[in-house]
Design a protein around this nucleic acid. Structure first.
Length: 883
RNA sequence: GGAGGCAUAGCUCAGUUGGUUAGAGCGCAUGCUUGACAUGCAUGAGGUCAUUGGUUCAACUCCAAUUGUCUCCACCA
């Protein structure tokens, strides 16, 4: 047995959390061994961005994962929680560019690609561990020895392997298509990276005159500047208003270009004017129309969002500046018909919120159609389960409506696309290793594609790339597929779905069997926490003030899967108060301990209240284990909370005080052992949720293991169930509560003690050993129990009468009692009970209820009726005695 | 336009396959220095479980519609 330390008088989490975490690390408890012979349980962390700072969303995510992993570890699994970080292409590149501009007044182009990347790596090495250290403050039991980074050597190898395989299968291709372009980040974006924000805009109606001066057509647009790239106007072939115009030629205003009127089903007859200007280079639908009619693609907006050299007099203007100028010119020349206000959704970059510009560009794409089927089947067939289940619908809906995935980014920070071009013969080679000699012409003037891959391309491989894939490492063999993925619903489309189809395609296996989805953490007013609102709550400040355990408790409690939650001062204070309560109860138990052993004494030697608490604890254990199995973290925690506070502290600890005050007796030792057993059990059940305080207390008590985190999680012990004794003891509790209630009703000061006479047919329940409980907890001066009421002992006229379903209790308090009031009260009570009994009678005489309801339910109702009848007879007796 | 969530006490929220008198925290009221804890103890007030219908012996729970509210996806120029 190690030395047991003292527990200081005040609960001060700062005094032990870091020390305990360091000890766990030193002992390597977080690092499971592949050959430990235990069944595997694994989770990979959703890798936070290296640029990131811990926020409440992370705190919730990590807390839930840690709860699961600690629970499974204590249950005897080889529990691996694999941590790491994501290189976060756009975010990190922007971050370092900012620093560069601020500190040195330079742009990345000033440095050049290689030098710039050196700076990014410097930055990563310097600040990339910040978020990892923050995770440690939370108590996360990640296996830091297996920490990975999306751009480390192994993962980069996996990325290349996947790219080349997909390319060779024809699932990756290069194409000239309309993509979403962010003029600020100067890169292409995937559909998922575009956020639509509703904006107040205008609808400009413009006349396009017919060649030859005989009339015009009227088109409407929200982006007038794109007219510089118009190469046709389209009408619906079934639109009778315009059939005569099809095939005619128009003169594009301001530009003077001749463009045709084409017929295309894409045009909605009922919307706008029914005539649509077609700009194939800057609109995805127009691009398709253009392909069908063989129209020229004229790109007029450049990478930085300005009008390019094809824009005539508008060349060089920013797109919004050009819009103003064009509208003004149209008006001056009489082409502008009118301007309508118009609300529409504008696509913006999810990183910088700049309005994206759709433009035609050469990019790399993943062909989605062949990957979707298996990824849908895995969920539909239940091999991958979403928890809560409803999120599988969101997943399915998204997967069924996928376009090809644009994976190339015009950035420098990321995995460079492994495509090599021969400058001599133009051959392109895609290969796992760098190409230096052209396989076609033998030329050596080779350059690699300058683009990098979408960050999510490497994230999609995370569950297996982190395990060493494509090598068959021992980790991969043992821990893949992983068991649970814990993440927020906001990331299902970005990440979860891509992991699923990638894993199925490349490993032939699912990446995880359960996706445990949680909601967002909002502020006390229900608003999303954001930098711009400045309403974010810093988890590290909370930890500093209240402790990591309190933060974890606040995040885990009252939170149901998939739902958003609010974080408030009240919540964190309630959590801290609970920790304080546990701390003090433990201190009380500890100061009364003289024993060293940890087990229970002979069951037969236990008092009824001991058997009662053990029965209740056993039930708690059953609840906890089954609800954790269903990811009901919040329900589990509140069950432990209620038991700890209401059952253990408020009742059982109080009930043991009489025995604790009698040192040296056998009863005293028994009480100590049961107290220690139940308290230790609570600590173990609670440990996954509140790892620090439970460890600190556990080690201060006689303990059976060198750390609570590697001890065994409590399991149900069949022998500890004892409904009969537990029910019998509940009668005592019921009686004490009833006495307290009556005394409070009558405003009897606690200092005013009273004799307590208990008339009951359950005299066994109210044995000699229960009398001190009435003295201590119900202000009794002395207690007398009788099988039946003894008229000689009690003058009912002078007694307060209390009726429970198992006893009639008399408090002789002659000077306080008001006979009329008593009679009235008893009559009201009698009426209520009779109404109850009648209702139950009616229910039980209902033939279909008795025959169709389960026997247990019917029996339950019968028991209720029996209790009601007993109470009725108790009240009637009392009334009779009252005269 | 498509899909989904939510609606329970003054506030914030639980309520695990339908089965007592619907719960918690905070707040409120009353009384307590009960030698672990005032970050506490005891007691209490407070709810037609959004509305209407349906299924069932039985509905806060399942189904449909309605109202309010939030979110995601698509995007008609």
């Amino acid at each position: 047995m190690e030395n047991k330390h003292e527990l200081p008088k005040t609960y001060d989490p700062k005094s032990f959390e870091d020390r305990i975490y360091q000890n766990w690390c030193d002992k390597k408890y977080f690092t499971p061994s592949v050959d430990d012979g235990k069944p595997p349980f694994s989770i990979v962390i959703p890798p936070p961005n290296v640029t990131g700072q811990l926020h409440m969303g992370h705190a919730l995510d990590e807390t839930l994962q840690d709860i699961l992993i600690r629970w499974k570890r204590m249950e005897g699994y080889s529990a691996l929680w694999l941590p790491g970080t994501d290189h976060a292409g756009i975010a990190t590149q922007i971050k370092v560019e900012e620093v560069l501009r601020k500190d040195e007044g330079l742009t990345r182009y000033d440095l050049g690609r290689e030098k710039f990347l050196e700076r990014v790596w410097d930055w990563k090495n310097k600040y990339g561990n910040r978020i990892i250290n923050q995770l440690k403050k939370l108590g996360s039991s990640c296996d830091w020895s297996r920490e990975r980074f999306t751009m480390d050597e192994g993962l980069s190898k996996a990325v290349r392997e996947v790219f080349v395989n997909l390319y060779n299968k024809g699932l990756i291709y290069r194409g000239y298509r309309i993509i979403n372009w962010c003029p600020h980040c100067r890169t292409a974006l995937s559909d998922a990276e575009v956020e639509y924000i509703e904006q107040q805009g205008s609808f400009w109606h413009i006349r396009y005159p017919l060649k030859g001066g005989s009339g015009y057509v009227e088109v409407a647009t929200t982006r007038p500047e794109t007219m510089l790239g118009d190469t046709a106007v389209a009408v619906n072939p079934n639109d009778e208003r315009y059939t005569s115009l099809i095939g005619k030629t128009l003169i594009l205003p301001l530009v003077g270009r001749e463009i045709p009127v084409v017929a295309d089903e894409y045009v909605d007859i009922g919307f706008g004017t029914g005539c649509v200007k077609i700009t194939p280079a800057h609109d995805p639908n127009d691009f398709e129309v253009g392909k069908r009619h063989d129209l020229e693609v004229i790109k007029v907006i450049s990478d930085n969002g300005s009008i390019n050299e094809l824009g005539g007099k508008y060349a060089g203007m920013d797109r919004y500046e050009a819009r103003k100028a064009i509208v003004a010119d149209l008006e001056a020349e009489g082409y502008l018909v009118r301007i309508e206000p118009h609300t529409h959704n504008v696509g913006t970059c999810y990183r910088c919120k700049t309005t994206v510009e759709p433009l035609a560009s050469d990019q790399w794409f993943v062909k989605m159609a062949p990957l979707v089927g298996p990824a849908l089947d895995a969920v539909k067939e239940g091999r991958i389960k979403f928890e809560p289940e409803r999120f599988s619908k969101i997943y399915i809906n998204w997967m069924e409506n996928l376009h090809d995935w644009c994976i190339s980014r015009q950035l420098w920070w990321g995995h460079r696309i492994p495509a090599f071009y021969c400058e001599d013969c133009g051959e392109m080679t895609v290969a796992k290793t760098d190409v230096t000699v052209c396989p076609k012409c033998g030329g050596t003037h080779i350059h690699q594609d300058p683009d990098v891959l979408d960050t999510w391309f490497s994230s999609a491989l995370w569950p297996f790339s982190t395990m060493g894939w494509p090598e068959k490492t021992p980790e991969f063999e043992k821990y893949f597929p992983t068991n649970v993925l814990v993440t927020g619903y906001d990331i299902i489309s970005f990440w979860v779905s891509r992991m699923i189809f990638s894993s199925l395609e490349h490993t032939g296996n699912i990446p995880f069997s359960t996706v445990f989805i949680h909601g967002l953490v909002r502020d006390a007013k229900g608003r999303k926490m954001s930098k711009s609102l400045g309403n974010g709550i810093d988890p590290l400040e909370i930890i500093d003030k209240y402790g990591a355990d309190a933060l974890r408790f606040a995040l885990a409690t009252g939170n149901s899967p998939g739902n958003d939650m609010r974080f408030s001062d009240e919540k964190i204070e309630a959590a801290r108060n609970f920790a304080n309560k546990l701390w003090n109860a433990s201190r009380f138990v500890r100061m009364n301990l003289t024993i060293e052993e940890t087990g229970l004494p002979e069951y037969a030697s236990l008092a009824n209240e001991d058997k009662w608490i053990l029965d209740r604890f056993n039930r708690l254990t059953a609840t906890v284990n089954s609800s954790l199995e269903h990811f009901e973290v919040g329900v589990t925690l509140s069950a432990i909370y209620d038991f700890t506070w209401d059952v253990f502290c408020d009742w059982y600890v109080e009930l043991t005080k009489a025995r604790l005050n009698a040192p040296g007796t056998e009863e005293n030792l028994t009480a100590q052992r049961v107290l220690l057993y139940v308290l230790t059990g609570i600590l173990k059940l609670l440990h996954p949720f509140m790892p620090f305080i439970t460890e600190e207390i556990y080690l201060s008590l006689p303990h059976d293991c060198e750390s609570i985190m590697i001890s065994d999680y409590p399991k149900v012990t069949e022998e500890l169930y004892n409904t009969e004794v537990a029910d019998s003891f509940e009668r005592v509790i019921t009686a004490i509560k009833a006495i307290r209630t009556r005394r409070a009703d009558m405003n009897i000061a606690p200092s005013r003690k009273s004799k307590v006479y208990i008339a009951t047919k359950y005299a066994d329940s109210f044995g000699e050993s229960t009398k001190p409980f009435f003295v201590r907890l119900a202000s009794a001066s002395e207690v007398e129990v009788a099988e039946a009421f003894d008229e000689n002992e009690v003058n009912a006229d002078n007694s307060v009468q209390i009726i429970t379903d198992s006893a009639v209790i008399y408090l002789p308090l002659a000077d306080i009692i008001d006979i009329d009031k008593e009679r009235k009260r008893l009559n009201t009570e009698l009426e209520r009970l009779k109404a109850d009994a009648e209702r139950l009678n009616k229910k039980l005489s209902n033939e279909s209820f008795v025959s169709k309801a389960p026997a247990a339910v019917v029996d339950g109702e019968r028991a209720k009726l029996a209790k009601a009848l007993e109470s009725i007879s108790g009240v009637e007796t009392a009334l009779k005695k009252l005269g």
